[in-house]
Write a protein that binds this DNA or RNA. Structure first.
Length: 129
RNA sequence: AUAGCAGACUUAUCUUAUCGACUUGUUUUGCAAGUAGGAAAGUCCGGACACCAAAGAGUACGCAUAGCGGAUAACAUCCGUCCAACGUGAGUUGAGGACCAGUGCAACAGAAAGAAUGUACAGUUAGGCUGUAGUGAAACCAGGUAAACUCUAUGCGGUGCAAUGCCAUGUAUAUUAGAGCUUAAGAGUUACUCGCUCGAUUCUAAAGGGUAGGCAGAUAGAUUCUAAGAGUAAUUUUAGAACUAGAUAAAUGAUAAGACUAGACAGAAUUCGGCUUAUUAGUCUGCUUUUUCU
């Protein structure tokens, strides 16, 4: 699998984002938090993702940009965890809830944990249904 | 040489490898090219541009600016110059229009700083008036103060690209236009005057509203550099040359290794000229003080 992250794979629609925050469930692996929702979206990929960093925790735009780039990079290199295990289309948003910047290696491991948690959660919900 | 003053300029880590993002071009899932700032920041001034008769006209109020002259699209910016204060000096700073329009205010001293008339002495006919002394920067037809009200001169409508225009999708009446009927007093804006706008119901016609879906606006411009001319200068005229970040839940990156003087402040969002603030490493020019030598 190619580790790309194109426009189609990113969450763009304001309407979908609004629905996501209203109806979505969430999983946590500090300093990351994911809100997800099973729904149709605008592309053929298994999932669309977005990234957010609160202005409250990082006042400077430079720091927010840096963290968003790190998160995107971690997701890009591990997205097969998600893509290989989903039957239905999902959208999700990954937020950074820490107050300080983490190193890349540590963040990479946390991302792996977060994505695994997400997959387990999805399977659990499907089993219940 | 030392201490200092003023001004100008450069830089804003680099190289290689792997994996990616956005735009454009090829053309096909590849390839090529380009891809943050000097402050992109604060949003403090001034414009361009767009829309809004609830936008206009006059008065009042309010706000801003304030020696003089000039530059500019414009400015609270910039240049020149006078004056004042500070500094040995180079220079720095300036809330530097007007108290013969009115009102107010004034430490200490002093009887009193203006609805006052004291004390002592002298002059004069008593009352009273006049003069002198004493305090103070200033003692009555006087002066100071406008970072006091005020006056003068000049300028000022509002909202900001989520402006605005077009297309698509699409549901139901909250929209618009015209006509008929009833009412003509009232309401709205900016304090007032003028102006302007506004009702309920019926019928007819049209396509609005919402969804922030797409395209345009939106990246070449009061641009930068060089030369010559004008000007003390800011700046300007002419000629030549150069320059494409353009995203929109928002690209311009991540990791590894190496190098050096060991990398600061910090991320475009319609756009331009300034100001202010943050900050890395350095270079150059002019000048001043003190000391030494010729």
């Amino acid at each position: 699998m190619k580790h790309t992250l194109e426009k189609e794979e990113r969450l763009k629609s304001r309407k979908l984002i609004e629905r996501l925050y209203n109806d979505g469930n969430s999983v946590k692996a500090f300093p990351l938090r994911m809100v997800f929702l099973q729904t149709e979206h605008t592309s053929n990929f298994p999932a669309q993702m977005g990234v957010s960093v609160a202005k409250r925790n990082f006042k400077l735009a430079v720091h927010r940009n840096r963290i968003k780039r790190l998160i995107r990079e971690c997701y890009r290199l591990q997205k097969e965890i998600v893509y290989d295990n989903l039957d239905k289309p999902y959208i999700f948003m990954i937020s950074y809830i820490g107050k300080e910047e983490w190193k890349y290696d540590e963040l990479f491991l946390k991302m792996e944990k977060l994505l695994t948690l997400f997959i387990n959660e999805v399977k659990k919900i499907q089993d219940e249904v």
